[in-house]
Design a protein around this nucleic acid. Structure first.
Length: 757
DNA sequence: TCAGTTTTCCTGTAGACAGCATGTC
DNA sequence: CTACAGGAAAACTGA
């Protein structure tokens, strides 16, 4: 079918045509035939990169032309921004709603298409976004993620809630190939489109001893290097291609990049310029390693990296100069970054408590699907590396020829379900147990498990937890969310977390920063750092030093969990003590990206704690809010008034403070030339201007900052942080080129092995 | 005696959503 | 209390 003949808005058609697309792919045609443009519900389960996005766009534009609005649900924030760029300039207003980027409520509703993560949509539902009822076309990207243990249930509930609220809404579900597409389509009441068609040929092979075994041929590759993972790369590069290499750990990703760099030895001005950018911003060993690899045409990619590092690597690869990226699974699920050859080197991954497990078939397909850039590569190759001769056949059977796995609902899990039950009651979706049951019967879980008994029991458990916690009241069958329940639901935290937090807030006695951080790290909403053997001595010492502060209790089998929370809390407390990134990274064996994630996560929970404190324990409110600010900016107590000024962050605030400018008032009375000598002339101008406008009352009044300013004015150094570490740590920021932390930190390390049992 | 190679032992193990209110160096 | 790969240290080899 000719694209321009379709009944779609001209602006959209023109834009697609400009991209060189004239004809539709076969699966896309099939969707049109099944009524894609007339509002039909469809489940499209086809391989990666076979044109799913265009299918969604066509449906959305058709729906918009009929006067409706479209919602596009994605699994990752990064994907939301990527899709926003893709959808732009096609005659429609595009809005993005994710946790860290969202427009004002009213403006979101003014868009034709809103792109959002599933959690954000859930949150919007809980907070009653009125425009959601105007959505006439819902697109769910990667709907097979319903199977995901941690986030799948949310996606499933969001789909169920939206359809429950707007029954005649069109649903387009996009999925990877799955084992039970009919079952999923049955739940959605959708027509099913399956296909194994691809725009670029995909050749799947197994490599063993420099021989690649495809189903129809075998080919020997040259072996200039010792290991075949590098030979596979060199072979592909010699042919003008690029490689994505998937490995099981960060260390392996970095290790591969180092070997690839010394084997490739690429030279190019573009590589040098990327490497210089990386070098200039590198604060850690990892950053320097990355820069050195990139200079030679190789890179790695994992979650320990920060945003800038990742972006530079992705761009360098897209521009063709970086020849290989060795990556943990980050890249498989995330951005669209295809390559001629995909090398799946590690097909085993460590699973806590189970040892090494083979990765799921779906994940293999996800990675393999990255092979072959449409219009650029003649074909794509996905190559698994076998560790032994017999593994060649095994891998062929277990991955290449294996059937797709089925999607299973995770909504039977009580812990997760409780949060959703609460939200259903709080938002008025359901007002009684019967209505809840009626709703739950619309889930995919109920569709998969026909007996009601298990679901009914889980519901009872969830309700008794919620009533016991006084989040929900049951007045002769009528369910009602209390203020506490309502707040928990809107804050989007797990009811179990809310209970842990309020319990600690209600307890008598002082709640120190550290105790609060550690407590929050124990909640199911916080992800925590992995504890290494090397950390144990440090953690144990730290624990005994602060034993009486902690509010959480733990039994022997929660030991690991406790240590993880302790390590994470320790990192965060270093962060708000202004310890430098590089020091933190080496001390805890993490990357800058990990610091960011931890700060981000705890910031959210701290915000929630502040709100809970207002409700239950006003005497803790100020303390919690102060900690929230300190975490957000990574600053010690005394800098709080300064960071209120626009343009001042942790670094400038510390510089000003050490130069005796300790408050906005002091900044205004100081000699501008002096301020300029501290932060630079231009910056000085702008921050002084900002301080003035703030003074005029245009900035929001902040009692906390005012109290702080008053105290700082009296020149009272009030510190209650961990003694001994303060002075030296602060210098990490205040002065350039500080050598090392103070003695106290050293001795934590050298505390040594005797702490072991 | 030393450089190069093989064996043994020990260690470490992926990722990332949500609130809120606006802007780092 | 799972299992494997990678790296470092130790042991070994050959001139």
């Amino acid at each position: 079918m000719h694209f321009s003949d379709l009944p779609l808005p001209e602006a959209f058609k023109q834009n697609i045509k400009d991209k060189g697309i004239e004809f539709l792919y076969p699966p896309q045609n099939e969707c049109i035939e099944k009524g894609l443009l007339e509002g039909a519900d469809l489940l499209v389960a086809i391989p990666t990169a076979s044109g799913k996005t265009l299918i969604a766009e066509m449906a959305m534009h058709a729906a918009i032309a009929r006067g409706g609005m479209s919602l596009y649900i994605v699994p990752l924030k990064a994907l939301a921004t990527e899709k926003a760029h893709e959808f732009a300039n096609k005659g429609c207003a595009i809005g993005v709603a994710t946790g860290d980027y969202d427009q004002k409520e009213a403006r979101l509703g003014a868009n034709d298409i809103v792109i959002a993560t599933s959690e954000k949509v859930d949150s919007l539902l809980r907070n009653g976004a009125p425009w959601l009822s105007r959505v006439s076309c819902l697109v769910v990207d990667e709907v097979h993620l319903i199977d995901d243990e941690s986030r799948g249930p949310t996606l499933e509930m969001v789909i169920t809630k939206l359809r429950h609220a707007t029954p005649n809404m069109q649903v387009i579900a996009l999925s990877a190939t799955i084992g039970n597409p009919k079952e999923l389509a049955g739940w959605l009441g959708a027509d099913l489109i399956t296909s194994d068609w691809r725009p670029v040929d995909l050749r799947e092979g197994i490599c063993y001893r420099n021989m690649i075994y495809f189903n129809d041929e075998e080919r020997e590759i040259p072996s200039p290097a010792k290991t075949e993972d590098i030979n596979l790369l060199l072979d592909c590069v010699a042919d003008g291609g690029q490689c994505l290499v998937f490995v099981s750990s960060r260390r392996n990703a970095e290790g591969y990049a180092k070997r690839a760099a010394s084997a490739l030895k690429s030279e190019h001005a573009v590589l040098d310029s990327i490497a210089e950018k990386l070098e200039a911003a590198a604060e850690t060993d990892m950053g320097r390693t990355l820069a050195a690899c990139v200079r030679n045409g190789a890179a790695f990619h994992h979650a320990g990296m920060n945003r800038m590092q990742r972006t530079l690597v992705e761009e360098g690869f897209r521009s063709g100069f970086i020849k290989s990226i060795s990556s943990t699974p980050t890249l498989a699920a995330g951005l669209n970054l295809p390559a001629r050859r995909v090398i799946i080197r590690d097909y085993l991954r460590y699973v806590g408590g189970e040892g090494m497990r083979p990765i799921p078939v779906r994940e293999y397909r996800q990675m393999a699907g990255r092979a072959g850039r449409p219009h650029l590569d003649p074909y794509g190759e996905a190559i698994l590396i076998a560790k032994s001769e017999y593994a060649v056949n095994d891998l062929y059977e277990e991955y290449v020829e294996a059937p797709d796995e089925e999607v299973r609902s995770g909504c039977g899990e009580q812990g997760i379900l409780t949060a959703h039950i609460l939200s259903l009651v709080a938002t008025g979706f359901a007002r009684s147990r019967d209505e809840l049951m009626e709703f739950l019967e619309k889930t995919f879980y109920a569709h998969q498990h026909t007996g009601k008994r298990a679901l009914s029991r889980t519901l009872n458990d969830a309700l008794s937890f919620l009533t016991g916690a006084e989040m929900v009241t049951d007045l002769s069958g009528m369910l009602h969310a209390t203020e506490y329940g309502e707040l928990t639901s809107r804050l989007y935290i797990d009811p179990r977390s809310a209970e842990m937090i309020t319990a600690a807030l209600r307890e008598d006695g002082e709640l120190t920063d550290l105790a609060l951080l550690q407590l929050l790290c124990m909640t199911p909403d916080m992800f925590t750092l992995y504890v290494k053997k090397n950390d144990l001595a440090m953690l144990e010492k730290f624990f005994y030093d602060h034993e009486e502060e902690f509010r959480t209790e733990f039994s022997y089998d929660e030991m690991e969990e406790f240590f993880r929370s302790l390590k994470t809390a320790m990192l965060l407390s270093d962060w708000m003590d202004e310890t430098g990134d590089d020091t933190i990274c080496t001390r805890y064996g993490v990357g800058p990206g990990d610091i960011h994630n931890a700060v981000e996560g705890i910031g959210w929970l701290l915000h929630a704690s502040g709100r809970l404190a207002r409700l239950f324990s006003p005497e803790h409110r100020n303390g919690v809010e102060e900690t929230t600010l300190r975490i957000r900016h990574g600053i010690r107590h005394e800098l709080i008034p300064l960071v209120r000024i626009k343009g001042i962050g942790r670094v400038r605030a510390r510089r000003l403070f050490t130069n005796n400018i300790t408050s906005p008032e002091a900044l205004l009375t100081a000699d501008p030339a002096f301020v300029g000598s501290i932060v630079g002339g231009k910056t000085a101008e702008s921050i002084i201007r900002a301080a003035k406008t703030m003074k005029r009352g245009r900035g929001r009044r902040d009692p906390l900052a005012e109290r702080m300013a008053a105290r700082n004015g009296e020149n009272e150094p009030t510190e209650k942080g961990q003694s001994g570490q303060n002075t030296g740590a602060a210098e990490d920021i205040a002065t350039v080129g500080t050598e090392e932390g103070p003695g106290a930190q050293r001795s934590l390390f050298s505390f040594g092995g005797e702490a072991d049992e």
